[in-house]
Each structure stands twice: as structure tokens, then as C-alpha cells.
């Protein structure tokens, strides 16, 4: 498997997992009245400011044969986590977590509370209100969360290097491949891949901003959708 399709597979897995985990966390952050909420917010945002090597280092320790995660995984599956694709997915998910949670939380919070009250008064429980009101009105946030966590995972380097190493077809992602090419003075190949990542990053950001500016949204959401 070449490094590009490996990166895409990794980014796809991480984006899907983060959407599922991110929603309840974002919902809780958006609607809980607990005063200690800022604690969880800080934990979620931690990967934004932490050097990837720090995160990767601790992830590696946790996943190693003597780390808690590693031991658990060995007991369950019989082999280790570090330097495997699964380990990579786990560490990447942690690293990209804020990119999924923040847009979801912001768009959940932006839903008019009166709509939620109205839904409750019409007999809808929390789950139905989420499905029928919050989620449809937060679609731009969902798209943003998916796309950003995908793109962020696609471009990561430090965490992958620490946790995954550089095993061709298993953990060698595009960004590491580029590094390899540069190390071996293969600037042509490096440029090839680098340009590709640049193009993807640009396309992804265009998509995010267009969705949030509602360029393709149906007419009724554009004018006075309050």
C-alpha cells in the first residue's frame, strides 16, 4: 500500500471515529450547566497547544507493552499496539480531537434555545430534539468537524512518527514519506507529494468556509433563517 492511500485510510477512520465520539462531548460542553466545564474544555483543547512529539511520546508510553493501553490490547488481541495501524488511529484521534469537537460545540451552541424549549413543550425528549432540531440546524458544523479532523490527520507528522515509526504500508503516511524523500535527497518525489498535500489542504479549507458561508445551502437557510 502506498503512503498516500494509507494516509487517506487513516484520516477517514479518524474522522469517522471522532464524529461519533465528538458529538456527545460537544453536546455536553454546549448544554451542561456544570461550573467545572472549563476543565473538560481545556483537556479537549490540549492537543492544539501541545507539541505533537509530547503527545506522541505519552501515547507511545501508554501503548507500549508495559503501558496500560498496551497491556489491555495485548490481553484482548494478543499483540501490541505501538507501531501498528490501530495504534496510529488511536493516537491520531486524540491529536485531532479538538478539530472535531470545537466546530460541533460552536454550532450546537448557536441553535436558538427557544427552539429547544419549543421542542420540549411539544413533547420531544432530549434525543428527539437533538435528532430533529439541533443536528439539522448544525449541519455546517458537522461538515466542518468531519473535514477538519480528516485534513488535520492527513497532515500530521510528529505523532505518527513517535507512535507509528516508519513501516512501509503499515505506518508510513504521506508526511513521513515526504520526510524520507527529503532525507534521501529525492526532491522531485518530495515536491510531488508536498504539492498534493498543499492542494488537498486548500480544497478542504475552501469546502469548510463555503459550507459555513452557506454557499450551497437551500435558499430558506440563507435569508433570515432565525
Amino acid at each position: 500500500m502506498n503512503s498516500l492511500s494509507l494516509s487517506f485510510e487513516l484520516a477517514g477512520c479518524v474522522a469517522a471515529i471522532l464524529l461519533i465520539i465528538g458529538m456527545p462531548v460537544a453536546y455536553w460542553l454546549a448544554f451542561s450547566n456544570w461550573r467545572g466545564k472549563f476543565l473538560l474544555e481545556s483537556v479537549v483543547a490540549l492537543p492544539l497547544v501541545l507539541p505533537p512529539t509530547v503527545l506522541g511520546f505519552y501515547a507511545l508510553l501508554a501503548m507500549g507493552p508495559r503501558g496500560p493501553l498496551g497491556k489491555l490490547w495485548i490481553a484482548l488481541s494478543g499483540h501490541g499496539l505501538a507501531f501498528t495501524f490501530t495504534g496510529l488511529v488511536l493516537a491520531s484521534a486524540v491529536y485531532s480531537f479538538p478539530f472535531a469537537v470545537q466546530p460541533l460545540m460552536v454550532s450546537f451552541e448557536a441553535v436558538d434555545r427557544k427552539l429547544l424549549d419549543a421542542s420540549a413543550l411539544l413533547g420531544a425528549g432530549k434525543w428527539r430534539t437533538f435528532q430533529r432540531i439541533i443536528l439539522p440546524l448544525s449541519l455546517p458544523g458537522v461538515v466542518t468537524a468531519l473535514v477538519l479532523s480528516f485534513a488535520h490527520t492527513l497532515g500530521e507528522f510528529g505523532v505518527v512518527l513517535m507512535v507509528g515509526g516508519n513501516l512501509a504500508g503499515v505506518t508510513r503516511t504521506v508526511s513521513i514519506d515526504i520526510y524520507d524523500h527529503v532525507q534521501s535527497l529525492e526532491y522531485g518525489e518530495a515536491n510531488h507529494l508536498a504539492l498534493l498535500l498543499l492542494a488537498i489542504a486548500f480544497a478542504v479549507l475552501c469546502l469548510v468556509y463555503a459550507v459555513n458561508r452557506r454557499v450551497w445551502a437551500p435558499a430558506w437557510t440563507r435569508w433570515s433563517a432565525k
Binding site: 436558538d112 427557544k114 424549549d117 419549543a118 421542542s119 420540549a120 413543550l121 425528549g125 440546524l137 433563517a225
Partner: peptide, 29 residues
């Protein structure tokens, strides 16, 4: 809880669901 009080409440802002049609709004409850 409000969900089972069987009270109807029309806010000053009306709080119609913007993404649903008039019929879907009315049928919501």
C-alpha cells in the same frame, strides 16, 4: 417535566423550526 405537561406555549419570537415546512412544524408535536 415540560415534555409531558401538555401545555402549549407560543413565545413572542414564535420559535418556528426554520428547517421544517409549515406542515412539518405543525405536525412536530
Amino acid at each position: 417535566p415540560p415534555q409531558i405537561r401538555r401545555m402549549a406555549y407560543v413565545f413572542q419570537s414564535l420559535a418556528l423550526f426554520p428547517h421544517l415546512t409549515i406542515e412539518q412544524n405543525v405536525a412536530y408535536g
